[in-house]
Design a protein around this nucleic acid. Structure first.
Lengths: 157, 157
DNA sequence: CAGTATCCCCCCTGATACTG
DNA sequence: CAGTATCAGGGGGGATACTG
């Protein structure tokens, strides 16, 4: 796409989006977090062209988000498993899910719900907390550019 | 891009990505959360072509994520302010930020840090919690398709 | 089943020039 | 400053056919 690359950006948000901010990667990761492992599972779930899926999977493996493993059943094929780096995207997917649930569905419209396995109760909303446990809103935080020398005001996030 | 639309998807993650899952929107929102309001600020910060920025801003306004307001200074122009729906994307941006900080920088490489305004201490990582306060990992949750009738195993997220 | 190989088209991207 | 208009190009996206 010749789009401006941000892999070298100083901003972690930009770097993250550069890695997984396309239209398919996060959906693949969502499915992987959901237990999917096989090419065909992804393909059927996403309805994406096989060629595109191949590209995306290869890219996710290259990024260290997925890894290839021999199939757990007898088959001669491989499976795509989440690495720790990939599993760490859980909060990203959950935050997207929670935002969508709250703002993208009509009042009466039913939507799926993320529940705690133990007790089957809905999970809480993700909340950002300070080191002493206070809940932090978007105005309560500042991006400090470098661990050491620091500008005071909110600057580039 | 003629890509498959997911605005009608049953999965909130897909709907969210359909709305803001492109290469610029979340960066605009990041900047807006950072206090930016003016066309020129976004343009300079992102280094994006003006035409593209116009499209994206218009789309975000149409989605109800940004809203137009008269300029706070004397100027005759308008400002783009986050709505509540837009501010609710804070956890999404933070989760991307934290993931990037942890996995996208070389060991020695310095990166910016999100700090609590009060005390300037780094924030905690976002954690998902159950209704009784336990921290939940990705294996501790299940997507229940509809609030009522529910399959047991992890299914489409 | 799990890809690879083509093909084409569309639209996004990025520049530049222009307007109020 | 805040956009709008226009244009070139290139790569993603989708479909289909093919292979092991």
């Amino acid at each position: 796409m010749k789009r401006t690359r941000m892999s070298g950006a100083a901003c972690p948000v930009a770097r993250s989006l550069d890695a997984i901010g396309d239209w398919w990667s996060l959906l693949i990761i969502r499915d992987a977090l959901d237990g999917m492992r096989r090419f065909g599972e992804f393909q059927k779930s996403l309805g994406v062209a096989k060629g595109i899926l191949t590209t995306r999977l290869r890219n996710l493996v290259a990024l260290g988000i997925l890894e290839l493993a021999p199939a757990s059943d007898g088959s001669a094929y491989q499976e795509y498993l989440l690495t720790e780096k990939g599993r760490a995207l859980f909060p990203v997917v959950v935050s997207l899910r929670q935002w969508g649930e709250q703002y993208l569905y009509a009042p009466g419209e039913a939507h799926s719900l993320l529940v705690d396995n133990e007790g089957e109760r809905p999970v809480e909303r993700l909340e950002l907390r300070s080191s002493d446990g206070r809940v932090l809103g978007w105005t309560d935080t500042t991006v400090r550019k470098l661990p050491s020398s620091s500008p005071k005001r909110r600057s580039q996030m």
